[in-house]
């Protein structure tokens, strides 16, 4: 599969979950996990450009597909606007759900560069944040929408 733009090839057990492949095999520990039942969304990555829960995909199933994780957002030393937005608007506290939220936010803005509050809430509704109460996450995504080139002048 391709992970963050690089082709990776590994021999793994068929049962290995994608999230463990990313974390344990590739050392990409930015993707976290928080439940067993596909409910928390902590493990969201982009799978062929769409948000997917990587705890509910086998690594072997991802063979031939494109996976992007939070580690890919920063590009040539420049933070993605969603990363900047989360910093500017206090879109995170403990940081645990943040990677998944950032990936969903990125995918949303790629499809809809000017999403409404309701659209943003819907887009992150499969991901639980226990810290922020979501309003600041919504504002963070709006910030990114309003600063498509980032905030560094």
């Amino acid at each position: 599969m391709t992970v963050n733009g690089e082709v990776v090839t590994r021999d793994v057990e068929a049962r290995l979950l994608l999230v463990h492949f990313l974390r344990d095999e590739l050392g990409l520990t930015g993707t976290h996990w928080g439940c067993d039942t596909s409910n928390c969304g902590t493990c969201v990555v982009l799978y062929d450009d769409e948000p997917v829960k990587s705890c509910t995909v086998l690594a072997v199933m991802a063979g031939g597909h494109d996976v992007r994780t939070v580690e890919s957002l920063e590009w040539e030393g420049q933070l993605d606007p969603v990363q900047q937005g989360f910093m500017e608007c206090h879109g995170l506290q403990c940081g645990f759900c943040t990677s998944g939220m950032l990936m969903s936010a990125r995918a949303l803005l790629d499809r809809d560069p000017d999403p409404s509050e309701a659209t943003i809430r819907e887009a992150i509704s499969g991901q639980i944040c226990r810290c922020t109460g979501y309003a600041s996450i919504v504002r963070s995504v709006r910030w990114a929408a309003e600063h498509p080139a980032g905030g560094v002048g």
Binding site: H32, T69, H90
Partner: peptide
């Protein structure tokens, strides 16, 4: 003031216990 710790969290560079190898 923006949070200092966010610089690592937004990059997926937090270090949680299960990240430890």
């Amino acid at each position: 003031m923006l949070r200092k710790e966010d610089r690592r969290f937004v990059r997926g560079r937090g270090r949680y216990v299960d990240d430890l190898q």
